[in-house]
Amino acid sequence: MLDRQITDRIRVLVVLSRPAVAVLFALYVALGLAQAGHAEDRLLLAGCLIPVMAFLLCSVCVNDLSDRAIDQVNLPGDRNRPLVTAAAGSRELVVTAVVSATVALGSAFVLGPRPGLLMLAALAVSAGYSLRPIRLADRGAVAALALPACYVALPYLLALTAARSAVHPRDLLMLFGLYTGFIGRILLKDFRDVRGDALFGKRTFLVRHGRRATCLFSACGWTIGTCVILAATPRRTPALVCSYLLCLALALVILRILAGEVGHRREEALITGAAAIGRGMLILQLAHLAMSQAGWGALAYSTVMGALLALTLVQAAGMLRHGPTTGLTIASLREGATASPGGVASDRRASHIVRRGT
């Protein structure tokens, strides 16, 4: 019985860590180290991952607590939301958030004063994003600009400043490219949550401006981010440039399709396909920096870059065809059986908002 309880608690922590988001955090940490010239420093990588992952766990707990009512509408039965499924209680998430924040702040200061101060600022932004009276999550475009400060700037700058004290203009240019590209991708998350966001008055960019404007703004973020990253990349090669431009072209095609009227399942597949392309571009950038610093030969370099590009395209194609492997549960049978006419009207209202904006 005790073993079962321990296993359940570990499973809840894994779910709260949001594995897909954790992979992104790890990629940005690795990119920060690679930008600082420490792409192969595994000990420093591990040291940077501890505070970053603790920060992620704290942020998720705080966000889930503040968005509980919205998640019950957007994600009923979703096992990635322990509060919604009652796999964990509010008190448990509060304790987890406090402990995680303490670990994040303490381990960041172990790396140095600059990483520690960055973590302190990131925790403040994360709290302001989810908690009232500030609650940036309800402020549309402001939320889309603030969230990347935690998702991109923190792991990248924490790793960079842990590796070396000086921050060069090229480092900031790379950060701007990563930041802008992430804004283009994070806007697409609002499609999944539009129903609850509209019902609870959460004025996301999608709710405020509609489907076409959101896809256009996202396309601008993808394009500007890609160009800036390439401009900031040292020793860029034709293989990297061609790979990035191909990925960008595919992402823009996906956004063009998403801007039209598509069903929910097709919409979900398009968004996950775009996410796969975004992750692939980060991996390509990391591989380029690591191989360039290690002095790989042209043939080996081109082979690896080609393989990573092919893997990205295959994964994106699979997502576009089949959607995510663990699709979200929109409504359980129990909820569907007790659905009220008001719920149907709310769905129609949300759909109208997505199509035309407000």
Rank of each mutant, 00 (worst) to 15 (best):
L230Q: 00
L16M: 14
R349L: 13
P324T: 00
C58V: 07
D347G: 11
T325M: 13
Y244V: 01
G260E: 06
R195Y: 02
L252N: 12
L172R: 00
A36L: 06
R256G: 15
P148F: 06
I50V: 15
P113M: 09
C242A: 15
F25G: 05
L24N: 07
L240A: 02
P155Y: 02
V14G: 02
L230W: 00
L311W: 09
I254A: 13
I254V: 15
L206Y: 04
Y179S: 08
A251F: 00
L75I: 05
A350I: 05
P19L: 13
A121C: 13
E40M: 03
A337N: 08
M174W: 06
A162K: 04
A298S: 11
I50T: 13
L43K: 08
R42V: 13
D78L: 00
G112S: 06
L24F: 10
R334H: 07
G263M: 09
M319Y: 14
V194P: 03
L120A: 15
G128H: 03
L255M: 08
E261M: 10
C58D: 11
E268Y: 04
M1H: 10
S351P: 00
S346Q: 15
D3C: 01
L172S: 03
I277Q: 06
R68V: 11
V228W: 08
S17I: 08
A124E: 09
A153M: 15
I277C: 03
L245G: 12
A137S: 15
L117P: 10
R212K: 15
I50Q: 08
I10A: 15
D78F: 01
G184T: 07
I50W: 09
I224H: 05
N80K: 12
A101C: 07
V344Q: 13
R81N: 09
A137L: 06
E268P: 00
D67G: 09
A88W: 05
A310M: 13
L286H: 06
A298I: 05
L111M: 04
A331Q: 11
R192N: 13
L83F: 01
A269H: 03
L131C: 10
R355T: 06
V152N: 10
G181S: 03
L118D: 03
R42D: 12
T329W: 03
G278D: 04
R42Q: 15
V73D: 01
R355M: 04
A137K: 15
R256V: 12
L13K: 08
L16P: 01
R211W: 10
A259C: 06
A46L: 14
R11Q: 07
T326C: 11
T96F: 03
A232T: 11
L57V: 11
L117H: 10
G343E: 14
G32A: 09
V194D: 14
L45M: 13
Y129S: 10
M291Y: 00
L320Q: 01
V125R: 02
A143Y: 03
L328S: 12
D64A: 10
D3F: 09
H352T: 15
A87H: 02
A317P: 10
R235A: 14
A159S: 11
L187E: 08
S107W: 02
V354C: 09
H322D: 14
A26I: 10
R9M: 04
S107G: 11
D41S: 11
